[in-house]
């Protein structure tokens, strides 16, 4: 009995303290070091923030370089298939241009009408200041089962701050949750930690909650509200962060929202800096 206890304690101690050969550090010393780093990072000691920011900037750049081969081959096959479909694509685009030409007149009329109505209501016209938009490249798009986020190549140097909305082709994709000097992390709408106030076509208000899957879901809808498919979902702007009316997605029969932008296919995004200028954060 005592022999087996001795065996246990010898093996246990050896596993924790063993060094020599290729092992220059014992597991125990590294556990202590990891705990120190963890608590310094979590409790945000003043000097750890710039160190973490510098580390982030360096590692994100290396990650971008290291991922180049994985981005190159899918892009080549995509380009090749595009090349072979060019004729059909051309015809489709011509038809689309004709359709949009007729719609353009309507849009012009509606825009003027909208501006006039906003003037009457003395509300703010959020999209007037286009110089407050920064275009950023997606550096890292690592698909984690637990955290849906992307890294962009613009940071505090460009004026990006925590909380700023991020869009792609004017569709909302998420918000900035971490800023470094040269890079930022954007929390996507489908992340489990993402909650934003939205409004539906018919005027109902709700909260769009990320579920960790591709399609976020709607919460806190009016009690008697029945979800039907193909209802447009927009940011309501009630949080003072997202511009009201920014399109997000469309509802489906499962009560989820299919995003207009596939969060896994982002290459470039735009960050709206107007929140900073409006002094809302």
């Amino acid at each position: 009995m005592s022999v087996s206890r001795d065996d246990f304690s010898i093996a246990f101690r050896s596993a924790l303290l063993q060094r020599g050969g290729a092992q220059k550090f014992s597991v125990l010393s590294l556990i202590f070091l990891a705990l120190i780093i963890f608590f310094l990072d979590v409790y945000g000691a003043k000097f750890t923030k710039p160190v973490r920011g510098f580390l982030n900037d360096v590692v994100y750049r290396i990650t971008f370089l290291a991922s180049t081969p994985t981005r190159f081959f899918p892009q080549v096959s995509k380009d090749l298939s595009k090349y072979f479909n060019v004729k059909a694509e051309n015809e489709r685009l011509k038809a689309e241009i004709e359709k949009y030409k007729s719609l353009e007149l309507n849009v012009e009329f509606l825009t003027d009408e909208n501006k006039n109505l906003q003037k009457i209501l003395e509300t703010e016209y959020f999209n007037k200041n286009l110089s407050n938009v920064v275009l950023a490249k997606v550096l890292v798009d690592k698909n984690s089962p637990f955290l849906k986020s992307i890294i962009i190549n613009k940071g505090t140097r460009t004026g990006i701050m925590k909380g700023m909305p991020v869009t792609h082709n004017n569709y909302l994709v998420g918000r900035v949750v971490e800023t470094n000097y040269l890079s930022s992390r954007v929390l996507l709408l489908n992340d489990l930690n993402s909650r934003i106030p939205v409004t539906l076509d018919q005027g109902a208000q709700a909260i769009l909650s990320g579920s960790g899957t591709n399609n976020p879901s709607l919460e806190y809808l009016p009690e008697d509200y029945k979800i039907v498919d193909e209802i447009n979902v927009f940011a309501s702007g009630k949080d003072g962060i997202f511009s009201p009316g920014t399109p997000i997605g469309i509802t489906n029969l499962d009560g989820e929202v299919e995003l207009f932008v596939d969060p896994n296919q982002l290459s470039f995004v735009t960050v709206n800096l107007s929140i900073q200028n409006l002094g809302k954060l």
Binding site: V27, L35, F38, L40, L147, E178
Partner: peptide
């Protein structure tokens, strides 16, 4: 750093694997 977790947490998890 890449995943956006607090620093040291993955290291701790990997060190437990090494220990076992």
């Amino acid at each position: 750093v890449v995943m956006g977790f607090p620093l040291g947490i993955s290291s701790l998890s990997y060190l437990i694997i090494i220990f076992v």
